[in-house]
């Protein structure tokens, strides 16, 4: 690894230094192709973010792919119902590694205004490892852009070697997650305990 002081000194002199890992992550983070996948109201703001005014292509993510096989990023934009949740997990499983998930909007992160409903999943993070959560109902396109920048920072910080390397480089890390069944009363299982655990209330005695 190169010393940071030496590196900034070199860049002042017009010498650009980098590492293979940084170059690799720089390329990855600037070409995140999202899955063309809208669920509800938030999908309209997602489309608005890809239009001329907000222009998500400034961040290299304008290539919305219709097939999960070609996508790097799943933007869960909208309410996930219990009928739709198995298909969402299946789509995630079909995406190639490395893959990321943005949960966009109150419904996708917690069920939102429809949380009390009998048919609404209370957050897609019960089944999928979500990288960035965006609150809002619906979030503004700027919020989606901010989430994308946050994800880019996360990708830029991922290591390629060593024990803390990125999940897609670890052989034992799961690439697919179990698909819940649309059972008689509820989704079965109701959550994936490897991904999500209910919050524990710690009370002072």
């Amino acid at each position: 690894m190169i010393d940071e002081g030496l590196r900034s000194e070199l860049s002042k002199q017009g010498v650009f230094t980098t590492t293979v890992g940084e170059l690799y992550n720089w390329g990855r983070k600037n070409s995140i192709w999202p899955l063309n996948f809208g669920l509800a109201c938030c999908a309209i703001e997602m489309i608005a973010a890809s239009m001329a005014r907000f222009d998500i292509s400034r961040f290299g993510s304008e290539v919305f792919r219709p097939s999960p096989r070609q996508a790097d990023l799943m933007i869960v934009a909208g309410t996930v119902t219990k009928k739709m949740a198995p298909q969402v997990v299946r789509l995630y499983n079909q995406m190639p590694e490395p893959k990321y998930v943005i949960a966009m909007g109150a419904c996708a992160i917690s069920g939102g205004p429809f949380k009390q409903g009998y048919n609404v999943l209370k957050g897609i993070d019960r089944y999928l490892p979500v990288d960035v959560h965006i609150p809002g109902c619906p979030p503004r396109p700027e919020a989606l852009l901010h989430a994308l920048i946050t994800l880019q920072e996360k990708i830029a910080g991922q290591k390629l070697t060593g024990p803390e390397r990125a999940p897609h480089l670890q052989e034992e890390a799961p690439s697919e997650y179990p698909i819940p069944d649309y059972g008689a009363y509820d989704l079965d299982p109701p959550k994936n305990p490897d991904v999500w655990q209910p919050p524990v209330l710690a009370r002072k005695d």
């Binding site: 669920l39 409903g117 048919n119």
Partner: peptide, 8 residues
Amino acid sequence: VFGYLHRN
């Protein structure tokens, strides 16, 4: 076939 966005 509908019902994928039934939100009560």
